[in-house]
Amino acid sequence: MSVAAKLRSAEKQTQEPPRAILGPAGNRVRVLEEAKRKIEVLKKSQQKPKKPVEKMSQAAVKNNLSVDSTCSSDSYSSSSSSGRNVKLNGIKQVKDVPNGGEIKDVSSKKEGPVKRCDWITPNSDPLYISFHDEEWGVPVHDDRKLFELLVFSQALAELSWLAILHMRDIFRKLFDQFDPSSIAQFTEKKLLSLKVNGNLLLSEPKLRAIVENAKQMLKIQQEFGSFSNYCWRFVNQKPLRNGFRYVRQVPAKTPKAELISKDLMQRGFRCVGPTVVYSFMQVAGIVNDHLTSCFRYQECNADVEKNFELPKSQEIEIVTRALGNTCLSHD
């Protein structure tokens, strides 16, 4: 055997360790066994189920954790389904999340003071404020109450509304609860006894006018059935709405007040000029002169609409009657 052949035979019998294999880029050396190990690890990792991103985010929110690593722990405060405060980036929000419902913003808005007519101020007497909120501009249909308000409107020439309200019980006591049939019987002696602290309640001409007006009111009740029917017929039984925005727009008298004043004086009423009559119309709710910015303006209008709303049965009856009359006229 030649020397070359012996050398080749010796090379075959010698076991060499596996040689390193160069990677595709020629700059990484990988061993076959290491490659197999990595493949097995990769297969195992693929068999492990992954959590959906949505669930992870929900879990993070539930545990007061931020999904974004850039968010700090103090930029987020705990929240619950009962609507606790949530603070995100310094912005405070209040949300209510009902079960299975939509997210509704229930941010607590501080309600400011109730807006009233401009002549009512924070320093106004509580009695005057109550009068504005509960009586002024509310439609009145009771004859005694209407006569009382007419007397008060006449008294405004000598007293303010606040003074009248504080003396209201005295007025009612001295004028027999404003019963016109009783006042019509007052004598001169009775009139001169209507005093407060030694002074007459009102001037003598005013007192005599009240007695005379009570007598004329009894005549109106006989003619129209009630003083209320007489007063409300001038506005077709429904209050007038002016819708003024500013105090300066509210008039002292109107053509309608002049018309009523003229009619009253023709019937023998005294001290019932257009200014007195218009004050009476305002306080009796014959006209709604609350400013449009006042909360009572809309409330008075709503009450009127509700009171004048006809029942369905009555509406059908009116329409049927109208259709019947139309058919008869054509026949």
Score class of each variant (00 low, 15 high):
110 K>T: 15
111 E>N: 04
111 E>S: 04
112 G>V: 06
114 V>R: 05
114 V>T: 10
114 V>N: 01
114 V>A: 02
114 V>K: 03
115 K>R: 09
116 R>M: 09
117 C>F: 02
117 C>S: 12
118 D>R: 10
118 D>Y: 08
120 I>S: 00
120 I>H: 09
121 T>R: 13
121 T>S: 12
123 N>S: 14
123 N>I: 06
124 S>L: 02
124 S>C: 07
125 D>Q: 12
125 D>W: 13
126 P>G: 06
126 P>M: 11
126 P>C: 09
126 P>E: 15
126 P>S: 11
126 P>A: 10
127 L>G: 12
127 L>I: 13
127 L>V: 13
128 Y>W: 01
128 Y>K: 12
128 Y>V: 11
129 I>D: 03
129 I>G: 01
129 I>S: 05
129 I>P: 00
130 S>A: 12
130 S>V: 02
130 S>T: 10
131 F>C: 03
132 H>W: 02
133 D>C: 01
133 D>H: 00
133 D>I: 04
134 E>I: 04
135 E>D: 15
136 W>V: 08
136 W>L: 12
137 G>Y: 01
137 G>D: 06
137 G>T: 09
138 V>W: 03
138 V>L: 08
138 V>K: 03
138 V>M: 10
139 P>E: 05
140 V>H: 04
140 V>M: 13
140 V>D: 07
141 H>A: 07
141 H>K: 15
141 H>M: 08
142 D>T: 14
142 D>S: 15
142 D>K: 14
142 D>V: 13
143 D>I: 00
143 D>N: 10
144 R>V: 00
144 R>N: 14
144 R>D: 11
144 R>W: 11
146 L>C: 08
147 F>I: 02
148 E>A: 12
149 L>W: 07
149 L>N: 11
149 L>Y: 15
149 L>M: 14
150 L>W: 02
150 L>I: 07
150 L>N: 05
151 V>Q: 01
151 V>I: 06
151 V>E: 06
151 V>L: 03
151 V>Y: 03
152 F>Q: 12
153 S>P: 07
153 S>T: 00
153 S>A: 14
154 Q>D: 01
154 Q>A: 07
154 Q>R: 01
155 A>K: 09
156 L>W: 06
157 A>D: 00
157 A>H: 01
157 A>T: 04
157 A>M: 02
157 A>C: 05
